[in-house]
Simulated assay, not measured.
Amino acid sequence: MNTQKIHISLLFVSLGILFACSPSPNKERTQSGLLRKDFQTIVHGDSTDLFILRNTQGMEACITNYGARLVSLIVPDKNGKATDVVLGFNRIADYLAQPSSFGATMGRVTNRIGYGKFVLDNDTIMIDKNNGEHAIHGGSAGWRGQVFAADQPNDSTLQLSYQSPDGESGFPGNVQAQVTYTLTHDGALAIHYHATTDKKTVINLTNHSFFNLSGNPEQSALNDILYVNGDTYTPLDSNLIPTGEIASVAHTPFDFRQPLVIQTGMDRDPKHQQLQFVGGLDHNWVLNTKGDTSILAASLREPNNGITLSVYTNEPGIQVYTSNSLDGSQLGKGGKALKQFSAVCLETQHYPDAPNKPDWPSTILAPGSTYQSTCIYRFTIE
């Protein structure tokens, strides 16, 4: 064998060793301990997968196209410790076994629509009632249970799209929607929504991530410090449907105009009827930001590890939910029980039941118009 053949043979041997030693992308664990192969299956005839975004600050976002949902989000704390700040599950099978909102894109209309109906151009639209006598989060065929088409153009961006057919859950119009996640190099996870329709309809999208900034779902998030840039909120009736009133937060458990421990705020009046209705916070605040994404809408800070989440949006409202309905029966990532008050959701949105409240900011989308919404979750250390 001549020298050239020996060199070629050694090259192929070296490449073989390299490929044998290199982990398969499907077997490589993310910082949060997830395996991509555990999210690869077929749902409704479409393929699901796990997509990984990274930035230069050591952050990592893991997103599945099932429900266009955020599965994990790694943020370094004040000591540089990689901390997964959202609740979720280790595999797609867990999401399929018990439908949930963890990290999902909620559509076609997030939150509740009273009695599963609304009037549009003098026609009464009947939609799927999946919450007793009411509709919530788009009905039983809501987008949290749909598979989105995925395109990842680079390491920090994921584009997800979904064609919602006319009549889905009773909503009119074929809606083409896109959800774009971007992990920016200044420490933010930006979510941009874009939608068009061929028939007048209603739309109101949000992300339903459950944030536990400590990284430990067994630690109550009621010890976190909350700020909401809103002077008013929308009270609920006993069916958890907004009454239509815009009420002042002053002298109530809903006044977080100055940063305050959540539990302390609720303790102002623990027997307040609104708290009793939902067992904690699960209300929409009317933001003072007037759609300006440069103005802080809300923030949440974990007092021990220093992680602070700041929220910016062009939406008129934000739902603050203290995970009141979690009961520890579900085991999340790492086998840890997901308990009551173990997380806080900060859902940027139009107000709940807006299709039935003509005086409120409208959720109507007409042909020729474009729905656009932005939510920016920015992380810093204090």
Rank of each mutant, 00 (worst) to 15 (best):
T3N: 14
I6Y: 12
H7D: 09
S9Y: 11
L10R: 14
G16E: 11
S22N: 12
N26W: 03
K27T: 14
T30N: 13
Q31M: 14
L34N: 04
L34Q: 02
R36D: 06
K37L: 14
I42P: 04
V43A: 13
H44L: 13
S47V: 12
D49T: 08
L53F: 12
Q57P: 04
Q57N: 12
I63D: 04
I63T: 08
T64R: 09
T64P: 06
N65A: 07
G67V: 14
V75Y: 00
D77F: 11
K78I: 04
G80L: 10
A82F: 10
R91D: 15
A104I: 10
T105L: 13
G107I: 02
N111Y: 11
G114V: 02
G116S: 02
G116K: 04
F118E: 05
N122A: 05
I125S: 01
D128W: 02
N130A: 01
N131C: 05
H134Q: 08
G139C: 03
W143R: 00
R144Q: 15
N154H: 02
D155G: 03
S156F: 00
T157Q: 01
Q159F: 02
D166S: 09
E168A: 06
E168L: 09
G170M: 00
V175P: 01
Q176M: 14
A177T: 15
Q178D: 09
V179L: 10
T180M: 03
G187R: 01
A188M: 05
L189R: 01
A190H: 05
A190D: 09
I191R: 07
I191V: 15
T197I: 06
K200H: 08
V202W: 12
L205N: 10
H208V: 12
F211V: 00
F211P: 00
L213D: 08
L213R: 02
E218N: 15
Q219K: 15
N223P: 04
D231R: 08
P235Y: 08
L236A: 04
L236P: 02
D237Y: 12
I241P: 03
G244Y: 12
I246Q: 14
T252W: 06
F254Y: 14
L260F: 07
V261Q: 08
T264C: 06
D267E: 11
Q274R: 11
L281N: 04
N284A: 14
W285R: 06
T289G: 08
K290L: 12
D292I: 07
L296Y: 03
A297T: 03
A298L: 07
N304T: 13
G306E: 07
I307D: 00
L309A: 05
Y312G: 01
P316R: 06
Q319W: 00
T322W: 04
N324M: 07
G328C: 08
S329V: 05
Q330S: 07
L331M: 11
K333Q: 08
V344W: 01
C345T: 10
T348H: 06
H350A: 09
N356R: 08
K357Q: 15
P361D: 12
P361Y: 11
I364S: 09
A366F: 09
G368C: 10
G368S: 11
S369Y: 05
S369R: 11
T374Y: 03
C375L: 15
R378Q: 13
T380C: 00
